[in-house]
Write a protein that binds this DNA or RNA. Structure first.
Length: 255
DNA sequence: CTGGGGACGGGGCCC
DNA sequence: AGGGCCCCGTCCCCA
């Protein structure tokens, strides 16, 4: 499954966004453009978008700290522990349990890791580490998700939601054509379409590409056995889209 | 119709 | 915690 589809899409994905209709803070990030253009550049600091007070979670109203009392696992636990949380957080996938179960499970473990998440069994040396984990992952999961106010997408973590919201606000604007992008590096890639810069060269031929993904796809054309293979006829393709076309056309085997 | 290139989206990882 | 980058992917267009 493509990672882009880890979230539900409720709109026609084939439509490209109408950038001009989307509003939000803008930031111009390309030093190249800054140097090249006589146009006045106003680098605005990317600030949180002000959202209307509705019930869905957004980047600005997420219950980061403290959690609502009905969600907070804090009661009954020491609050003065330093935050020396253990290894990186990891989203669990087990079946949800109640908050009370969580508190019961968040009990003392071994010497190094004393607090355990009741949902994914991940352990932390401090209670605050456990709280941070639960806020960003497991509590979010048991509460379904963080929902975007601009669309109906849902995310299991705050960071993912924040990143997604940028796809609505599109804060990175090309000074040459006005096109807007969600992330600075997307804008940088776009600027190469203006400058003609192609920093990604094929080691097998003289071609160069502005986009690393396009080079990767191109490299497939040099391979005898390509990455995407038809299950029916074993024919291989350089791109998944070509494989899909092949399969949809009926392949060479009757279904 | 097929294969390939161009442009771009988005989640995850790393610093 | 946030930004940059990587990787994987899609869509559109054209030869």
């Amino acid at each position: 499954m493509p990672r882009s589809f880890l979230v539900k899409k409720h709109f026609n994905a084939s439509k490209k966004p109408n950038y001009s209709e989307l509003e939000g803070p803008t930031v111009f990030i390309s030093p190249y453009v800054l140097k090249a253009l006589p146009v006045p550049v106003i680098p605005e600091v990317l600030s949180p978008v002000s959202y209307s007070p509705i019930t869905v979670w957004t980047a600005s109203n997420l219950p980061l700290s403290p959690l609502p009392s009905d969600l907070s696992p804090i009661s009954g636990y020491p609050s003065s522990l330093s935050d020396t949380s253990s290894s990186k957080d990891h989203s669990g996938s087990e079946s949800p349990r109640s908050d009370e179960d969580d508190r019961t499970q968040s009990s003392k473990l071994s010497d190094g890791e004393k607090f355990q998440c009741g949902l994914c069994n991940k352990s932390y040396s401090t209670y605050s580490g456990l709280v941070k984990h639960k806020q960003l992952h497991c509590d979010a999961q048991t509460r379904k998700s963080f929902s975007c106010k601009y669309c109906e997408k849902e995310y299991v973590s705050l960071g993912a939601l924040k990143m997604h919201i940028r796809t609505h606000t599109l804060p990175c604007v090309c000074k040459m054509c006005g096109k807007a992008f969600s992330r600075p590096w997307l804008l940088q890639g776009h600027i190469r379409t203006h400058t003609g810069e192609k920093p990604f060269s094929c080691p097998h031929c003289s071609r160069a590409f502005a986009d690393r993904s396009n080079l990767r796809a191109h490299l497939q054309t040099h391979s005898d056995v390509k990455k995407y293979q038809c299950k029916n006829c074993s024919k291989t393709f350089s791109r998944m889209s070509l494989l899909h076309k092949h399969e949809e056309s009926g392949c060479c085997v009757a279904h």
